[in-house]
């Protein structure tokens, strides 16, 4: 087995375009099992796009993604007869059950209780029965300190609590990779720490993670590797230690700008 296929995730020449505009230039990236990769960069640099290409929520325009030894390519355009796309779609659906994702805006389901939010995936994609799914959901909620809120609706929760539910919802499916897209950016400052702590624990437990964040302290502490993106491409990557003296002027300028608020 070659070194490249033993990576959990590999992006080969992945690009993303919206119409005429290229949002992600050809990008190569490998993420090893157990590795924590933090992605930093100015707003609009393509960080979210990169993450969303990984689980095909925004399918790449070109390129290949290899996840756990399986290759995934941009889905064909079945505009005329969408049903033809179903087999491809099912394959991507299976990919997504193995890749958890946590969003800046939480995206919890407001019409379901906290428990139902977590149980939904267990029932529909893992095929658990209602009882078993509910029990697993409560267990999973316990791990993020949300078991008591199992019967509540999201509107009754703080942002930090919603994000914990979203994390439990993703972790319940036992993903091999977790994607965090600015998971703490929409939170009140006093709620950030709790969510970051969950992410720290997860990293310490060996989870493979790609984390888009503006929390430089977190990135420096937790990351095995930091990636700096700008204008739709990876400018520079290295260990947190290496990021203390960045190679590129753009990286330096960015780090300076966020350090000064």
């Amino acid at each position: 087995m070659s070194a490249s296929t033993s990576s959990l995730l590999e992006l080969r020449q992945v690009t993303k375009q919206f119409g005429e505009t290229t949002v992600l230039h050809p990008t190569d990236l490998q993420v090893e099992r157990g590795e924590v990769v933090c992605v930093i960069g100015p707003s609009g640099s393509g960080k979210s796009t990169l993450l969303r290409c990984v689980n095909f929520i925004a399918p790449p325009t070109t390129g290949t993604i290899v996840f756990d030894g399986e290759e995934y390519r941009p889905p064909k355009d079945h505009r005329w007869i969408p049903a033809l796309g179903i087999p491809e779609e099912q394959r991507l659906t299976r990919l997504r059950t193995q890749v958890g994702m946590v969003f800046q805006q939480f995206n919890v389901f407001p019409h379901l209780t906290v428990r139902e939010n977590v149980a939904l995936g267990l029932r529909k994609t893992c095929g658990l029965g209602k009882k078993a799914a509910d029990a697993r959901a409560v267990e999973e909620l316990g791990k993020v300190g949300m078991a008591e809120k199992a019967a509540a609706y999201p509107e009754q929760l703080s942002g930090g609590q919603k994000q914990r539910v979203a994390i439990a919802r993703a972790l319940a499916l036992e993903p091999k990779l977790m994607l965090f897209d600015e998971a703490t950016s929409a939170l009140d400052p006093e709620l950030v720490g709790g969510v970051l702590q969950i992410m720290r624990d997860l990293a310490a437990g060996g989870m493979t993670m790609m984390v888009v964040t503006h929390e430089m302290r977190f990135a420096m502490d937790v990351a095995d590797r930091v990636i700096f993106m700008d204008r739709g491409g990876i400018v520079e990557q290295g260990t947190p230690e290496q990021f203390k003296s960045p190679q590129h002027e753009r990286t330096r300028a960015f780090l300076k700008s966020i350090n000064h608020g």
Binding site: I57, Q90, F106, N107, F109, K124, T125
Partner: peptide, 26 residues
């Protein structure tokens, strides 16, 4: 909100499941 569709897709729901269980009830 489009985030609902994305949240549903991220836990591996198919398009039809996403519609039936997440989008339609809302």
């Amino acid at each position: 909100p489009s985030g609902q569709r994305e949240g549903a897709a991220a836990i591996g729901l198919s398009r039809w499941q996403t519609f039936r269980l997440v989008i339609f009830p809302q």
